[in-house]
């Protein structure tokens, strides 16, 4: 589904990704772990199409389509979803209005019939229940005045409503207490299925106790230096990132 090959990217003249390779198949959950500054968030932003990041070499493909040729909204229409590390507050735009606009923009781009207010409301309520989000959040402006936990839950709700093929979760666990973390993880698990893939980017192993990945990758200095099964996360937790300096990337 997702194929990242020899990806090099930089921001403001500073090279951050230096040859990332990653292949994700439908139904899989991949964890990308790494310390601060390793390039985790850059990878997420490059996948979503943030213009501040310049891809200098390599390729990005989603279902065989070249992502670099696509605007951020086109990537969303193709089924890519990024759960932001820092969801943006948008005063003046109601949360459910925003979600309806997003759903219908995507449906329109795919040549599908747009949802009317009633159908959308039904979908929204159902998904809010699925990921355990209080309906009161839907009536507030997007993320404005939300607690850290509410913002992250709102990301999961958006994902549930937009039903992406590939969801990239950028440090969705950061700043969450254990209860919020469990809720978010349960939301993700509820959305796992054989057609959908996840890339879970995290600094800590903790989240992976609740979202158990099929594959774990260690990102250091802009390269994946090691890949393995879910046991790799525990190894990291025990040894820290120091033990992985410059080791060769396993295939």
């Amino acid at each position: 589904m997702l194929r990242v090959s020899d990806l090099h990217a930089r921001v403001e003249e500073q090279e951050i990704l230096r040859g990332v390779n990653l292949e994700v198949k439908a139904g899989e959950v991949h964890a990308v772990m790494g310390p601060n500054g390793s390039g985790k968030s850059t990878l997420a932003q490059v996948l979503a199409g943030r213009e501040d990041y310049e891809v200098t070499a390599g390729s990005l493909e989603l279902d065989g389509e070249d992502l670099q040729e696509m605007a951020p909204e086109e990537r969303a229409h193709a089924g890519l979803f990024l759960a932001f590390q820092y969801p943006v507050e948008i005063p003046g735009v109601g949360n459910s209005y925003f979600l309806k606009a997003a759903v219908n923009a995507t449906r329109k781009a795919r040549g599908e019939q747009e949802l009317d207010a009633m159908d959308f409301l039904q979908l929204l309520r159902e998904r809010a229940k699925l990921v355990d989000v209080d309906e009161a959040l839907l009536r507030r402006p997007v993320n404005e005045g939300f607690s850290g936990g509410e913002k992250k839950r709102n990301e999961i709700l958006q994902m549930a409503v937009l039903e992406p093929r590939l969801a990239v979760l950028d440090e969705t666990d950061s700043g969450l207490d254990i209860d919020a973390l469990k809720t978010v993880a349960a939301g993700v698990n509820a959305l796992r299925n054989e057609d959908r893939a996840f890339v879970v980017i995290t600094h800590y192993q903790r989240l992976l106790n609740y979202i158990v990945p099929d594959h774990v990758h260690v990102l250091l200095d802009g390269r994946i230096v090691r890949s393995g099964g879910s046991g790799l996360a525990h190894e990291l937790e025990a040894k820290g990132y120091a033990g992985f300096n410059g080791g060769p990337a396993a295939a």
Binding site: A71, P72, E73, L82, V93, F98, A101, A105
Partner: peptide
């Protein structure tokens, strides 16, 4: 950041732009 956030959710650039301008003036 807000513009990118809206686009990443599938809103075309001009629609996201209009939504943010309207949000500013809305009250």
């Amino acid at each position: 950041d807000a513009l990118f956030y809206l686009r990443a959710r599938g809103l075309p650039r001009n629609e996201a732009y209009g939504m943010l301008v309207y949000a500013f003036a809305r009250e």
